[in-house]
């Protein structure tokens, strides 16, 4: 199987501090790769180099064989890599449709004047949400009236609707209650079934084991180890997370 996303020798230096030293891994379609590691291990820096927010000091990122390194965050998103941030970046006062289309709103013309096509946006949102197993009770209601899991689903729906090949999720369950954490894990399963490759950042062990096809442990800017969940256990992962310091 050819990799969807290939990360090759990424390095990032901030002044005298080398946050990421040498990180390489691949993500295949329909696979969930968990980047695990303690705070300061370099997880976020790696993610930002993939999404185009940081430019790496060295190393390259390929999507479907095409070089991504050096592109702007917008260009990276167009290439099919969608990042879902912890805070979701939803506009709480707008309906799911507008949130799905934010920045790329659908427009129809009435007497030559452009009008927002709210109906189309709402229908599309409901459709994508349904493919994630979520029935939107009132498609015209603002998203602040929805539960944490449903809101997460909107952010994920955005990635699906714009046909992302890779979805990066930064601590998606960090701010959620237990039932909503389960909703998010169910969403990740559905994304995988749709052939989307997922990079999940987490330091929550139950999440890691529930979602991962592969676990890549980062410690002090390097890959401390790579395991399949079946081959390992909590203890070993924690040891690897701490490893470089021992």
């Amino acid at each position: 199987m050819t990799a969807l996303l290939k990360i090759d020798g990424l390095r990032k230096r901030f002044g005298g501090n080398e946050a990421v030293k040498n990180v390489s891994f691949e993500v295949n379609p329909g696979e969930c790769v968990v980047l695990a590691g303690d705070n300061g291990a370099g997880k976020s820096t790696v993610i930002k180099m993939i999404s185009g927010v940081y430019q790496p000091t060295d190393g390259k990122v390929y999507m479907n064989g095409a070089l991504l390194t050096g592109k702007t965050p917008e260009a990276v998103r167009t290439a099919g890599i969608e990042t879902i941030y912890q805070d979701l970046a939803l506009a709480d006062n707008l309906d799911p449709g507008l949130n799905l289309y934010l920045g790329r709103e659908a427009v129809k013309h009435v007497l030559r004047f452009p009008y927002l096509d709210r109906k189309k946006m709402r229908e599309d949102a409901a459709k994508v949400m349904l493919s994630l197993g979520i029935v939107v009770p009132d498609p015209a209601a603002p998203v602040r009236e929805m539960s944490g899991g449903q809101r997460q689903a909107i952010a994920i729906a955005r990635a699906i609707h714009w046909q992302a090949g890779i979805v990066i999720m930064d601590e998606p369950t960090a701010a959620l209650g237990v039932p909503e954490q389960r909703e998010v894990m169910a969403l990740i399963e559905r994304l995988k079934k749709q052939g989307v490759g997922i990079i999940l950042i987490s330091h929550n062990l139950p999440d890691i084991f529930a979602a991962a096809d592969r676990i890549i442990v980062l410690a002090r800017g390097v890959v401390a180890g790579e395991r399949r969940p079946a081959e390992t256990n909590d203890e070993e992962i924690v040891r690897m997370m701490m490893g470089a310091t021992l």
Binding site: A89, A91, D92, N93, L94, L98, N99, L102, L116
Partner: peptide, 24 residues
């Protein structure tokens, strides 16, 4: 009410990051 400009105005009032990350 009816333009993309208006939608961005509402989104800006709710969450600046939402519009910024949407490329506006």
């Amino acid at each position: 009410k009816h333009t993309r400009f208006g939608a961005h105005t509402y989104a800006l009032g709710a969450n600046r990051a939402s519009v910024e990350r949407a490329g506006v």
